[in-house]
Design a protein around this nucleic acid. Structure first.
Length: 487
RNA sequence: GCCCCCUUCGUCUAUCGGUUAGGACACCAGAUUUUCAAUCUGGUGAGAGGAGUUCGACUCUCCUAGGGGGCGCCA
């Protein structure tokens, strides 16, 4: 069997973490099995679908590196045999209507003239009477006269699919095993809206079949839609794809991940300085694992090791702290060139290091690399190298420069450094230690004031390398200026 | 209310009838160190509850409880 999977988002907002995870599992399954990964835009919601959302989905997918084999692309091009991969446009081409007509002709579907208000009333009444709030089939057996009257009133019908009243619908989910639904719990769902546009539950069936999707991998919030869709496959005489329902991602409070939990758009993670590889690695581990619980995956390794058998049935809580750790791991694993390239936009954006020499900037970035958890925090961590005047942290000044002996230490170091022949790491350290010894100070009593004097902070890179990179002029000038802050 | 799904450390998970229940994040302690971080070592910490099946259950079955999802002319 040819493996064909799809990610089918509706363009009604940004691509979020949950959507990206679903896309990722489809992508990985396709890559692992040597199949095709298809992107299809389900824009049958005329009111909420927007072009901006479609663009955002493209952008998010591309940034995350989830390249699709078939579907529409941001430049307007389309790959694959089933263009345009937008359901609304496919509807305009008449893709769905013939199947609806067929069901109507065979009596497997019927027109329903109930208005939204009537439906609302029925639901409310059912709720009040403790009955399930679903459509009871009022228009299932309308007489010719009734239809005529409704038509005369100008009512526009929807088309509903007739669900069987008895029996069971059973399917074998790749992740959950056998799942059974009693048909009596199904209801006659709308497959064509008054606008003529098919509803989601109908359009997915038609498109998945037409596009020869072999496996439907989606969130388990779709489990309850599955029996209805299976009934439609059956009515159309089609063989359904294999179903695989992924567990949901939850927020810390145990409910489905939503905006308030940080299910922010994928692009927001980019802006916050996350690496796409790190996000992807982290997401792959939400609801999936290898038999040995491997944590970090090298490039291409997920594609090779992904196995749907390793998918978890239970929901996973999104843990931003672990994501942060993982991002740090990826940052530390980058080489100088990669890190520089990744960090540069954030540095430019922050307006730090304007006009700095690229080689120099690269060295400075590497100096503090083991501290980075996100790219976004890099500018702040290195900014003091480039400012004209040191921005002193008040706490640092009070705790260090105001201490007894600080002034003496700085003066001694200034004296040494002014005449130091080789202004590089080792001699700098030796000179500082000598200054300490000669003045009866402990090494720390000298090192700390020097650090604060030149950087304004108590935390920073390894001291003498930092001084070396900063250069004699700047170091001396800064220490000189800091003397005024000592008491 | 009805239907469906789920249940191993705080979190992500391994285990596929016999293990001192393993790993990772986080946390704690120690080592290293000029700071922070990184790194290394060690530690705390789990099978929801109850019945079965079995020589033996985290693992299989049932019940209970808890959690989640769905019940639209949204997808």
């Amino acid at each position: 069997m040819k493996i064909r999977v799809r990610f089918a988002p509706s363009p009604t907002g940004h691509l979020h973490i949950g959507g990206l995870r679903t896309a990722l599992f489809n992508y990985l399954y396709a890559r692992k099995e040597g199949g095709q990964f298809i992107l299809r835009i389900e824009d049958t919601d005329e009111e909420r679908s927007t072009q901006a959302s479609t663009d955002a989905i493209f952008q998010g997918m591309l940034w995350a590196g989830l390249n699709w084999d078939e579907g529409p692309f941001p430049d307007g091009s389309v790959k694959g045999e089933y263009p345009p991969y937008f359901q609304a446009a496919r509807w305009e081409q008449g893709v769905y209507q013939k199947y609806i007509d067929g069901l109507l002709a065979e009596g497997k579907a019927y027109k329903c003239y109930c208005t939204p208000e009537e439906l609302g009333d029925m639901r409310a009444k059912a709720q009040a009477e403790h009955r399930p709030p679903r459509y009871e089939g009022r228009c299932r057996h309308l007489t010719q006269e009734q239809v005529k009257r409704f038509e005369a009133e100008g009512r526009k019908p929807v088309v509903r699919f007739k669900m069987p009243a008895e029996g069971e619908t059973v399917f074998n989910d790749l992740i959950r095993g056998e799942v059974r639904f009693a048909n009596k719990d199904l209801y006659d769902l709308v497959i064509r809206k008054t606008s003529g546009i098919p509803t989601y539950n109908f359009a997915v069936v038609v498109d998945d079949y037409l596009m020869q999707i072999s496996h439907v991998i989606r969130g388990d919030d779709h489990i309850s839609n599955t029996p209805a869709q299976l009934r439609i496959y059956d009515a159309l005489g089609w063989r359904p794809p294999v179903m695989a329902h992924l567990s949901m991602i939850h927020g810390p409070d145990g409910t489905k991940l939503s905006k308030r939990h940080g299910d922010t758009s994928v692009i927001e993670y980019k802006k916050q300085g996350y690496l796409p590889q790190a996000l992807i690695n982290y997401l792959a581990l939400l609801g999936w694992s290898t038999p040995d619980s491997q944590q970090i995956f090298a490039a291409g390794e997920l594609e090779r090791k992904f196995d749907i058998k390793g998918c978890q049935k239970s929901p996973a809580v999104f843990d931003p702290v672990k994501l942060l750790w993982m991002n740090g791991e990826y940052l530390r694993a980058m080489d100088e060139t990669q890190l520089y390239a990744a960090a540069r936009p954030f540095i430019d954006d922050a307006g730090v290091a304007r006009g700095a020499d690229a080689e120099f900037l690269r060295k400075i970035i590497m100096l503090e690399r083991e501290k980075y958890k996100t790219l976004k925090e890099i500018p702040d961590l290195i900014s003091f190298f480039f400012t004209d005047k040191v921005q002193f942290d008040h706490e640092a000044v009070n705790k260090v420069l105001k201490q007894e002996g600080a002034k003496k230490a700085l003066e001694a170091v200034i004296a040494k450094y002014s005449v130091l022949a080789d202004f590089s790491e080792l001699p700098l350290e030796a000179a500082a230690r000598a200054a300490a010894k000669e003045n009866g100070l402990k090494a720390g009593q000298v090192f700390h004031p020097v650090r604060v004097a030149v950087s304004g902070r108590t935390n920073g890179p390894t001291l003498f390398k930092m001084l070396e990179y900063m250069g004699r002029d700047k170091v001396l000038a800064r220490m000189q200026a800091a003397l005024e802050l000592c008491s």
